[in-house]
Design a protein around this nucleic acid. Structure first.
Lengths: 104, 104
DNA sequence: CAGGAATATAACTATCCGGGCATGTTAAGC
DNA sequence: GCTTAACATGCCCGGATAGTTATATTCCTG
């Protein structure tokens, strides 16, 4: 499960940057407060998890996000999401009932 | 961010167990392959993250899941979810177009 | 083909974290 | 009030990992 991959703030930040547009390693190094090898290492982890993919452009590697890899996490989250939306629905109903009562 | 909290498989397993029904520490110890202090330690992390809450029943502490704490993660996921659902929609459209073409 | 640019990998270190054992704490029951 | 049950906490250890510097690799450019 790629939860562990996302546990690292720098990696989430990389994904957020790549979500706007694809970026080369050098660009990411400029945006993050990390050494170039540090960024490369995180990109390696993200690649292995299928969360990003790389395209070669001369000496540069341009990375892009691969959002489908997050479906697994979304799937794990789904039943919990049902739980809190049900709570919200119940609260809604409750407030509606109160309002109903107020208006007689 | 509680991604780091969920990175631990045992903690996700605890949440999944508590999603069915609330459980005491002892029950969790029986269900997991972990020592009692190990379980307590994970529960502590989950509590600090607001992911579970405890109710006192005599000497026992009964834990339940607090799904709202996962909304933060869901919020982070949301823009990516939009991305892959858009991809699916595009694929749908593509396949429909192919089918349309086949039928003339 | 020499030099430099862009990135990956290697090697090393410091830190964090999960695991267990031993022990502290609180509540029940006699 | 002493014992036992249920749980939390402290302490220690081994493994994982994120960060760095140094080096290897690849590819363009002159």
């Amino acid at each position: 499960m790629s939860f562990a991959v996302l546990a690292e703030p720098a990696r989430r930040q990389i994904l957020d940057l790549l979500r706007e547009r694809e970026r080369s390693v050098g660009e990411l190094v400029r945006d993050l407060r990390l050494s170039q090898p540090g960024v490369s290492k995180h990109l390696r982890v993200l690649r292995d998890a299928g969360l990003v993919s790389a395209r070669v452009d001369a000496q540069r590697r341009v990375y892009r996000v691969q959002p489908e890899a997050l479906e697994e996490i979304d799937a794990w989250l789904a039943p919990y999401r049902r739980m809190w939306t049900e709570s919200l629905a119940a609260l809604d109903a409750h407030l509606a009932a109160i309002d109903e009562g107020r208006r007689g």
